[in-house]
């Protein structure tokens, strides 16, 4: 589904990613861990198309309908329309626009691109209500402006709700577990697990191993100083939790 080949990325002239190679097949869950400053968030943002980052070499291809598309040639909104979703580490507030309006506009925009019919209010509300139950949120929050006055946990759940509505093929979760207490973590993880099928994939960037107890990864990669220095199964995460990163990075 996703091939990252020798990706080099710089920001403001400083090289952050120094040759990343990664392959993600449909149905797989990958976890990316690493010490602070290793470039974890950068990787997910670059795949989603954040304008601050400059790709100096390498390629990122994404399979769409048996075609391999070069993601790097596409604008952020095009990538979203093709089925790439980024759950932000620090979700943005959008005052003056309700969650409902935002979700509907976004949903219909993606639908239109993919050739599916847009939904009117009544049908969209039905769809939305199912998804809201998935993340155990109060439906009333749909009338509140996007992320305004939301607690950290609510913002992260809102990201998962958006993911549920847009139904992406590749979900990039950027530190979705940071700042969550145990209860919120369980709800978010349950949401991710319910949305996961054999046809979509997830890349989770995480700083804390706890998330991986609830969303079990197929592969764990350690990113250090811009390179993947070790890959393994879920046991790797447990080992890192016990022993830290030093044994891998030296």
């Amino acid at each position: 589904m996703l091939q990252v080949k020798n990706l080099h990325v710089s920001v403001e002239g400083v090289e952050i990613l120094k040759g990343i190679n990664l392959e993600v097949k449909p149905g797989e869950i990958h976890a990316i861990m690493g010490p602070n400053g290793s470039g974890k968030s950068t990787l997910s943002k670059v795949i989603a198309g954040h304008p601050s980052y400059e790709v100096t070499s390498g390629e990122v291809t994404f399979d769409v309908n048996f075609e391999q598309k070069n993601l790097l040639d596409m604008e952020a909104d095009e990538r979203a329309k093709e089925g790439v979703f980024l759950a932000f580490q620090y979700p943005i507030n959008i005052p003056g626009i309700t969650n409902y309006d935002f979700l509907k506009t976004s949903f219909n925009s993606v639908c239109e691109y993919q050739g599916a019919p847009k939904l009117e209010d009544e049908e969209f509300k039905k769809l939305l209500n199912e998804k809201v139950k998935l993340v155990e949120m109060d439906p009333r929050f749909l009338t509140r402006p996007v992320n305004e006055g939301f607690s950290g946990g609510e913002k992260k759940r809102n990201e998962i709700l958006q993911m549920a509505v847009l139904n992406p093929r590749l979900a990039l979760l950027d530190e979705t577990d940071s700042g969550l207490d145990i209860d919120a973590l369980k709800i978010v993880s349950s949401g991710i697990n319910k949305l996961h099928t054999k046809n979509n994939s997830v890349i989770m960037v995480t700083h804390y191993q706890r998330l991986l107890d609830y969303v079990v990864p197929d592969f764990v990669h350690v990113l250090s100083d811009g390179k993947i220095v070790k890959s393994g199964g879920k046991e790797l995460a447990l080992q890192l939790e016990k022993e830290g990163y030093d044994w891998v990075t030296t």
């Binding site: 198309g49 952020a76 909104d77 329309k81 979703f85 959008i94 935002f102 506009t105 976004s106």
Partner: peptide
């Protein structure tokens, strides 16, 4: 970027 990553131009 947040809005674009949700499919808005």
């Amino acid at each position: 970027f947040y809005l674009q990553s949700r499919g808005l131009s």
